[in-house]
Design a protein around this nucleic acid. Sequence first.
DNA 1: GTGGTCTAGACCACT
DNA 2: GTGGTCTAGACCACG
Lengths: 125, 125, 125, 125
Amino acid sequence: MAWSLDSDRPVYVQLAERLKLQIVSGYYSCGDRLPSVRELAAAAAVNPNTMQRAFAELERSGLVVTLRTSGRVVTEDRALVEELRHDMAKLQVKTFVDRMAEIGCSRDEVLELLREVLEQESANL
Amino acid sequence: MAWSLDSDRPVYVQLAERLKLQIVSGYYSCGDRLPSVRELAAAAAVNPNTMQRAFAELERSGLVVTLRTSGRVVTEDRALVEELRHDMAKLQVKTFVDRMAEIGCSRDEVLELLREVLEQESANL
Amino acid sequence: MAWSLDSDRPVYVQLAERLKLQIVSGYYSCGDRLPSVRELAAAAAVNPNTMQRAFAELERSGLVVTLRTSGRVVTEDRALVEELRHDMAKLQVKTFVDRMAEIGCSRDEVLELLREVLEQESANL
Amino acid sequence: MAWSLDSDRPVYVQLAERLKLQIVSGYYSCGDRLPSVRELAAAAAVNPNTMQRAFAELERSGLVVTLRTSGRVVTEDRALVEELRHDMAKLQVKTFVDRMAEIGCSRDEVLELLREVLEQESANL
DNA sequence: GTGGTCTAGACCACT
DNA sequence: GTGGTCTAGACCACG
């Protein structure tokens, strides 16, 4: 997963989304200490202020908590993380189902294609 | 399906995509006569030239054929339409699977969520 | 050789050209009696007056002579026919050479390609 | 080679053909930067949009590639250019051979006339 | 009426 | 400056 940034949406929103993704996907686990704003900003080639703003978003949602003196960590609230993960997943699924319906795929066809692709992916591991 | 147009991608591309979708999904069937360029342009609130350009794309792909003076019809080549439909569907599925993997969903979880959503949709009918 | 007629040039000119071609190519030989204007007009699906006008052109050039009572025949003047044939051929060759030069073909390449095509044609007989 | 335009065929098609000819003939070589659309449009006395459309044709065939902001260049793919050149040449030859056959010229006569004309052309240099 | 083409003029993104 | 896109409005050929 690279730091790919569109120029048409606010950068801080994109950064926040990516960090959120890294948390719900388990790349950063509950209780993990996160890299410093400066480090992440450098890695993403953005201004530290922008990265800071991204973190502000994550704190509002409770995914990340700031420890006065020792940086930021992922929340210990596993249920919250899991809930967000589930919400994101469900949104993706709904969007997917709608698109397949637009293309004119039946319920069975969707499942059939999905199984095909999943097996290919498995085979590639 | 409304004539929703982003401002960030060429309008004629979006129009072509939408028409393609309407054909592969069966909204317009093989052999069906399509509305005139002027009609569709009016409906989509774009300049007729722009709609014409969209049709040029469809014609190059073979989905649509032009009858000199009596409008355009969807190709009679059902195999071509089916092939395109399958390609579009498979691309959607692959994108979907990748995104779910990013979120950190297992194969089984994807299938489980999908079944959930599909049943909800069925229930809504 | 079919009676293919463009709509952008005078029909009688096209008919005259075609008849001229049939004479110089030997389809009608010197001294041959030609079909009647009515017959030819019917075959070409044109008005007899139009075909008549085509013949007038051929008579002016001396390729065809009218016998008072017994229709028209191809001139007996073999030299004239041969001269016209040679002129037509030379014009074609010149046009051809010019076009090949435009494409950027060398003298040798032209000859090489020509031999290729001529042999293919021979093989097809 | 002048910007001669018929009025009976689409202008953009004629422009595209001419540009194609200039590329395969080596007037513009592989990698050469082409004049801007506006320049060429002015030279050919057509609307820039029309010239743009001509370039779109060339781009679809792969003969020309667009550099975002710094104009267009001829493809570096010499093989493609050579292939197109050969195709064009062969088509001309075939057409020529057919026409000569219609006139009633034998294989040897065609070659004889061709040599004559080629020598005249050489002499004119 | 249909599609096809062309012009004129404008705006945008990119550098 | 470059190419890319869009609009507006016009004309043509075809039946």
